[in-house]
Each structure stands twice: as structure tokens, then as C-alpha cells.
């Protein structure tokens, strides 16, 4: 089984988010980047398939050279090979089209992506990719078993879970549950040393068209100050809620 794990290179969750160029670009200055958490759950599940079922695991990212440390970390965790599609990721459809070219070229049976990346939270790529390569698709996936060409996946749905049966080729939009946080792996020294020898190939993009452009980013409004009202002064509280907060 050949597995392709899609790896987004995203700011660490503790990063302070700022924008530049008139609020049209994300300011990467001083930001630490990590493997997108939803992708990391998928990568860890892929490692299980590698170790228990002999799968071959390739990781892929669409992005510039600055994303290579993230791919190298995935190799140190245990992926066999890495591919970087050498173009900036602009929108979900463009990324999906570039990934489709990688899948078609590499003949992968199973693609595991995160259900969304935690930077732009588009959540579009896995579904679009499945459509483009004519594969089955399960998103919000919290459990995955593969037996031959048959797959059993569990999906998180409103208020419960759904188990679905499907077959390869398959695209998964994964999340926590595929593995648990305690299963996530820290690269060990042996893995880091072996990662030096593993191939990280850079492929040129197909120059898929970009259909959407970011016009402007806005941060959430800062939290307002807390106003304390004396319990004896209920009239004041009602006045504030009615006239200032306009909540009642």
C-alpha cells in the first residue's frame, strides 16, 4: 500500500498573529512553524500502517523552500520519502490540483490529509482532491482500518459517530481520533539521522490556476474591559446591558 500524507506547514498554536502589506499578508517574522496538527494525527496513523502492514509512506507539501524543515521532521518521524511542490499555496483548489498531479504521478492508494489546516481553516483540499483523482472520500475521520483494498472508517458527525465502509483509492480528511495525542511521536536521534539519507524531492508545479485571492485579513476585536457593577445597583446593570451592550 502506498500512502501519501499531506503535510501543511502552519504557525505554532502559540504564535502571535500579525499581518503586513496593508493587512493582505500574514507576517511570518518570528513565527515558529509546525506540522499541521490534523496532518500529524494522519502521519502517525500512516506510521502504524507502515509498521504493521508494510505500507510505504510519502509526505507532500505544496510550498516554498521554507517548508522543508517541516517535511524533514516528518521524515525523521518515519516517513520514507518527501515531495515538495515548489509553489506558494494560494488557495484550496490550487493546492488540490497540485496534489492531484502528485497522486496521479506516484500511484498512491491512500491519501491522508488533515480535515483542515489550522492556519486558514479552509477545509477544502481533501474533498477537492478526492474529486479530482476520482477517489472515495471520508472527512472528519476519527478511525481508519485498511484490509486489502477495503477500508473501514469512522466519521465524527453531529452528536455521534458514523462507521462507513469504502474502498481504495481513498482520501481521508483526518483529525484527532485517528490516533490520540499521546500516540504522537517525537523524532528520535536514529530517526533524525536516517532522515538525512531519505529523499526530499522538489517537483515543479503544474501551475494550476488560482481562483481566489486574499483581499484583506482582520483580527478579532480585542476583548473589552470588564465593568464591575455593585450587586445593590441592579438598575445600573440593566441600563448597561440595554444601552451599551445592547444585549437586552
Amino acid at each position: 500500500m502506498k500512502i501519501l500524507v499531506c503535510i501543511s506547514h502552519v504557525p505554532d498554536t502559540t504564535s502571535k498573529i500579525n499581518f503586513t502589506d496593508g493587512d493582505t499578508k500574514f507576517d511570518t517574522n518570528g513565527v515558529q512553524f509546525v506540522i499541521n496538527p490534523n496532518d500529524e494525527f494522519g502521519l502517525t496513523r500512516a506510521m502504524w500502517f507502515k509498521e504493521k502492514q508494510g505500507a510505504n509512506v510519502t509526505v507532500v507539501n505544496v510550498g516554498g523552500p521554507e517548508t522543508e524543515p517541516t517535511l524533514r521532521k516528518a521524515l525523521a518521524i518515519g516517513a520514507d520519502a518527501a515531495i515538495r511542490v515548489n509553489t506558494d499555496a494560494k488557495d484550496g483548489f490550487q493546492v488540490a490540483k497540485e496534489l492531484a498531479a502528485v497522486v496521479n504521478d506516484g500511484g498512491f492508494d491512500l491519501v491522508i490529509a488533515g480535515r483542515e489546516s489550522i492556519d486558514y481553516n479552509g477545509g477544502m483540499v481533501p474533498g477537492m482532491l478526492a474529486g479530482l483523482i476520482n477517489a472515495n472520500f471520508v472527512t472528519n475521520c476519527i478511525s481508519l482500518e485498511i484490509d486489502g483494498t477495503n477500508a473501514t472508517a469512522m466519521r465524527e458527525i453531529d452528536g455521534g459517530k458514523e462507521t462507513v465502509s469504502t474502498s481504495l483509492p481513498l482520501v481521508i480528511g483526518g483529525q484527532k481520533g485517528l490516533v490520540e495525542e499521546s500516540d504522537l511521536r517525537i523524532p528520535n536521534m536514529r530517526g533524525i539521522m536516517m532522515a538525512r539519507q531519505k529523499p526530499l524531492s522538489v517537483v515543479e508545479p503544474t501551475n494550476a490556476s488560482v481562483e481566489t485571492t486574499s483581499v484583506k485579513f482582520e483580527k478579532p476585536a480585542p476583548k473589552g474591559a470588564v465593568t464591575l457593577v455593585d450587586p445593590d445597583n441592579i438598575d445600573e446593570l440593566i441600563n448597561l446591558l440595554h444601552n451599551e451592550a445592547k444585549a437586552i
Binding site: 524543515p69 525523521a76 517525537i186 536521534m189
Partner: peptide
Amino acid sequence: TEEHKLVRDAARDWVKR
């Protein structure tokens, strides 16, 4: 280097965990 940071971050994550 990229490898310095990979080694450092692995040790950092391990200490945290």
C-alpha cells in the same frame, strides 16, 4: 542549521512530555 533545530526541538518536546 535545519538539523540543529530539529535536534533541539525534539529534545524540547521530549522534556515537555
